[in-house]
Amino acid sequence: MPVVHMASIVPISKSVGANRIIPTVAIPYPLGNPNLPPEEEAAVRRKLVEKALGALQTDVAEQTVF
């Protein structure tokens, strides 16, 4: 069961041992951006989730930041 960690602070994600890491937008809104109009914000989220799905389909041998 592969796991992808979508995290705002990549060094913490690495130190706790996540194997697939997606850097996200910011601590209070990792998967959004309140400064953008709703459609653009939805696109940002979609893109990050797509990236996460890509990571879940990728074989990795060690901790990898996508």
């Binding site: 209070p28 809104y29 998967l31 959004g32 309140p34 939805a42 989220r45 990050l48 989730v49």
Partner: peptide, 23 residues
């Protein structure tokens, strides 16, 4: 510990249920 305003406004900003439901 973090400013909750944005997550409370739209919790999908932390947990992307909307995007995954669409997919």
């Amino acid at each position: 510990g973090y400013d909750q305003t944005y997550a409370n406004e739209d919790p999908d900003r932390v947990l992307p249920v909307d995007a995954l439901r669409k997919m």
